[in-house]
């Protein structure tokens, strides 16, 4: 079943309000009050896509990704439950297994960790208790993303591995979700620049009449539309390959949109006060998660060369 247009429009309004409130602690509870469980039952693909598009557009830093990835892990591995939190792969170092302990390291945007955490060691997902882990703020490009580093060393005996399916499913879900968030950002920055260029006057005319700027925004728009198509297809199909391609093009499209848009603003967009740099920073962070677009282009090309089959994404 598909969400109908009216429900979707109403959902968008509520989700925007919720994202703008931006209370991390109450987010999941407030989502539940909206009847999110029901919505997911009707059409999870569309609902999640829209949720994350709006998260991107509003630059919200609520932790919506973590709970969703835990939900996906739950579906594929019965040992995962609601007391789990998930750590995204750490950007700082590669966790290893020194001696008889396991090095746990990962990133979360959650305010409080559950009693158990799910973490990546390479492509392997495992769980352990969160009690011995240390949490510290993660400084970086985008401090508004509320990201915190979680780390520690735990005895091997207290670590349980999750199934390979769980890990594939979590990576695919992460990719398609972040693809939608990047598409949301791409749409937002292009739309804002269109508005700005209609108002800013130079040489006695709105700068939006200049073809050089029109073409920048048109090409930015096209790539975002293309990435949006892929993100939608990835949400609907739920498969790992489409998610990979969607994340790849979404990263490229969002970064390209920022590059084109920055130029349209001139100096005003270069100020701390202007919102633009916050979107740019968010794009950099999101692009890294589950593979930046250049790395993913490589991965797609490697896999195509290995199989020598070119899958057709999207059946008639």
């Amino acid at each position: 079943m598909k969400l109908d247009q009216d429900t979707l429009d109403m959902l968008r309004i509520s989700l925007r309000a919720l994202m703008r409130e931006g209370h991390n602690e109450s987010f999941v509870g407030r989502l539940e009050e909206l009847g999110w469980e029901e919505v997911l039952k009707v059409d999870a693909a569309t609902a999640l896509r829209v949720l994350f598009e709006i998260k991107g557009e509003t630059l919200s830093s609520v932790d919506a990704l973590g709970p969703e990835l835990v939900r996906v892990a739950c579906l594929t591995d019965p040992s995962v439950g609601p007391n789990h939190s998930i750590l995204l792969p750490s950007p700082l170092s590669n966790p290893g297994t020194p001696g008889d302990t396991v090095k746990v390291e990962g990133v979360t945007s959650a305010t409080n960790l559950g009693s158990q955490v799910i973490f990546f060691t390479g492509e392997q997902l495992s769980t352990c208790a969160s009690s011995h882990l240390t949490i510290s703020p993660l400084q970086g490009t985008d401090d508004s993303a509320n990201r915190r580093l979680v780390y520690g060393e735990v005895p091997i005996a207290s670590v349980a591995r999750l199934s390979a399916e769980a890990s594939t499913a979590v990576v695919a879900a992460g990719r398609r979700i972040i693809a939608s968030e990047l598409v949301g950002i791409g749409r937002h920055v292009v739309a804002s620049a269109v508005e700005y260029t209609a108002q800013r006057v130079q040489y006695g005319k709105p700068i939006g009449v200049f073809q050089a700027l029109q073409h920048r925004l048109a090409s930015a728009h096209c790539l975002v539309v293309g990435a949006g198509n892929l993100a939608t297809e990835a949400a609907e199909q739920g498969d790992e390959w489409t998610a990979l391609v969607a994340k790849c093009l979404a990263g490229r499209a969002a970064e390209n949109a920022c590059t084109q848009v920055q130029q349209c603003y001139g100096a005003i967009g270069f100020t701390w006060e202007h919102e633009f740099h916050r979107y740019l920073r968010r794009v950099y962070i999101l692009d890294r998660e589950f593979g930046d677009w250049r790395t993913l282009e490589h991965e797609i090309g490697d896999r195509l060369q290995a199989t020598r089959v070119v899958p057709r994404i999207g059946a008639l």
């Binding site: 293309g226 093009l249 490229r252 250049r294 797609i300 090309g301 195509l304 994404i313």
Partner: peptide, 16 residues
């Protein structure tokens, strides 16, 4: 690989 992957992503977007 990078060229092939980039082309494929654009072809998929066009197809959809």
């Amino acid at each position: 690989s990078a060229d092939i992957g980039a082309a494929y992503a654009l072809m998929s977007a066009l197809r959809l």
